[in-house]
């Protein structure tokens, strides 16, 4: 049984923006469509964007999804996230932002957020008349043959999400999750993407958690408390710090900004530059 956040369940049971747009004769708007995934792989998303031509801006978005609970919720989240963005801004949206919007996804389901990001890219490139393949000229090598995943895609997701293990790559991209033949190749890409640092070896978990607690106590909690909120550390898994926001923070609409800019940025600056802060339900 997957442990989904309330937000995932809410958007699964009552999705926002499902469906597509009726064709319109209005010359000031255009419809762009992006399709990713396949029924064979077990999930697929068709994203529809209504674009204001003069401003190059997304007026509205709809989705059609074949997939599991979190695939449906991720698609719905994506449509909410991109409304009002210019196409250039939308291209900057990462899968992490989709996951954050959902209050986090189980790691094994992160590929649902990646699918959302890819559909967005596909829709915008379709609209602009760019072949997606042309943009990745260097993507020579097909790494995962089961799920048709290339090395450039793997490198991109490793970099954007700070991935450290082949298991994480599988959770985000499915790559390596079929026959498993490419796991060695994924290990190699990880090695190249995460060069071993020359710095001192990482401190033991207990020491790291104590350091994190100290920084939160001194530099973070006072600010959150000033706004009627609080933060609770739930655990540290690799470079991923699991936290819960409490009080006003837990219901605040900018809680993902709080996490990223107030909590994660400060901890990175003071302690570990690889640290990722993730909100858990």
């Amino acid at each position: 049984m997957w442990n989904y956040s309330e937000k995932v369940l809410q958007l699964f049971h009552n999705p926002i923006n499902q469906g597509s747009f009726k064709p319109s004769d209005d010359p000031t708007t255009a419809i762009a469509v992006g399709e990713v995934g396949s029924i064979a792989c077990g999930d697929a998303l068709r994203l529809h964007l209504q674009i204001e031509v003069a401003e190059d801006r997304i007026l509205d978005a709809r989705f059609q999804t074949f997939g599991c609970t979190s695939a449906i919720a991720s698609s719905s989240a994506l449509t909410e996230l991109v409304k009002g963005l210019t196409l250039d801004q939308a291209l900057q949206v990462t899968n992490g932002e989709i996951a954050d919007y959902l209050g986090g996804l189980p790691e094994a389901k992160m590929h649902c957020s990646v699918m959302g990001q890819e559909a967005l890219e596909a829709a915008i490139f379709n609209y602009r008349g760019i072949e997606r393949e042309e943009l990745h000229e260097d993507e020579g090598a097909l790494i995962c043959k089961c799920f048709a995943i290339t090395d450039s895609k793997i490198r991109k997701v490793i970099a954007e999400n700070g991935l450290r293990s082949a298991e994480q790559v599988t959770a985000y991209l499915k790559a390596g999750g079929g026959c498993g033949s490419c796991l060695v190749a994924i290990d190699k890409i990880l090695e190249e993407s995460n060069p071993k640092s020359d710095g001192p070896p990482q401190a033991p978990l207990v020491v790291r958690l104590q350091q994190i607690d100290a920084v939160i106590e001194q530099d973070i909690r006072p600010y959150l408390k000033a706004d009627g909120g609080d933060i609770q550390v739930c655990g540290l898994v690799g470079d991923e710090l699991h936290v819960q926001l409490r009080g006003n923070c837990s219901t605040c609409s900018s809680s993902s900004d709080t996490l990223r800019y107030a909590v994660e940025a400060r901890l990175r600056e003071r302690l570990e530059s690889n640290l990722r802060v993730v909100q858990v339900p």
Binding site: E35, I39, Q64, F66, C146, C179
Partner: peptide, 22 residues
């Protein structure tokens, strides 16, 4: 099914079977 982009066996996506894990 109303949420799904698929509704019949003829859509082009369904033909991409070579992408399937064997």
């Amino acid at each position: 099914r109303q949420l799904s982009p698929f509704s019949d066996d003829d859509v082009s996506w369904l033909q991409q079977m070579e992408l399937a894990p064997n």
